[in-house]
Computed example of a mutant assay.
Amino acid sequence: MATSTGEADRDLLVRFLEECFGCAQACQECAVVCWTAASALSPEARNRLDVRCAEICERTARLLSRQNSGDGAALRIQLEVCAETCRVTADNTFRPGRMEHRSAQQAASCRRCEVSCRRVLGLLTSEVTA
C-alpha cells in the first residue's frame, strides 16, 4: 500500500506501464492470428487497427518510461491518443470470424490500458494545476 503521494504516483506509473505493454502484446498477438487466418490478398482493416493499437501503446509506454522534465503537453497528447486508440480497438474487437476468447482478452487489455492512460492524464493535469 502506498504511504505517500510520490509512492502512489510511482505505483500508478508502474501499473500504467504494465497495462500499456500488456495491451501492446495482446493486440500484436491478435494481429498475427488474424493475419494468418486472413487471405494475404485481402487483409482486414481490423488487423491494421490491432497493429496500430500495439504500436501506439508501446510508443506511449516507452515515452512515459523515459520522461524526465520534457514536454508535458506532448506527453498528454500521446496519452490521449493512446486512450482513444485503445477505446476504439476494444469497441471493434468482437467481429464475426474472430476467436471470441482471444478477442475478449484483447478487449479487456485495451480497456485496462485506456483506464490507465486516463489516470496518468489525471495525474499530469493535477500537477499542472497545482
Rank of each mutant, 00 (worst) to 15 (best):
C113K: 04
G6N: 13
C30A: 13
A61D: 08
P96M: 07
T5G: 13
G72F: 09
R52L: 10
G72Y: 10
E7A: 06
I77M: 14
R46C: 04
A74E: 08
C20Q: 09
D91Y: 03
A107D: 01
L79D: 02
Q106V: 09
L79I: 02
R52G: 02
R118L: 14
I77A: 15
S103V: 06
S126A: 12
V88N: 10
L124E: 00
R119L: 11
S42F: 11
A8P: 06
C27I: 00
A108Y: 04
L41E: 14
V81N: 07
R76K: 12
V14P: 01
R98P: 00
Q78E: 14
S109K: 14
E55F: 05
C30T: 06
C113D: 01
R118K: 07
A8V: 00
S109M: 10
E44W: 05
A107F: 03
L17K: 05
C82N: 09
R48T: 13
E29T: 09
L121T: 02
P96C: 04
A90F: 00
A108V: 02
E80N: 12
I56N: 02
A90N: 00
P96A: 07
G70W: 05
T89M: 13
Q78L: 12
R48P: 07
S69P: 00
V51W: 02
R112C: 13
N68L: 15
I56K: 08
A26S: 08
A90G: 03
C86Q: 04
G122T: 03
L49K: 04
T89N: 12
R76F: 01
Q25W: 09
A74K: 10
T93S: 12
E80M: 14
A107W: 01
A108K: 14
R95E: 14
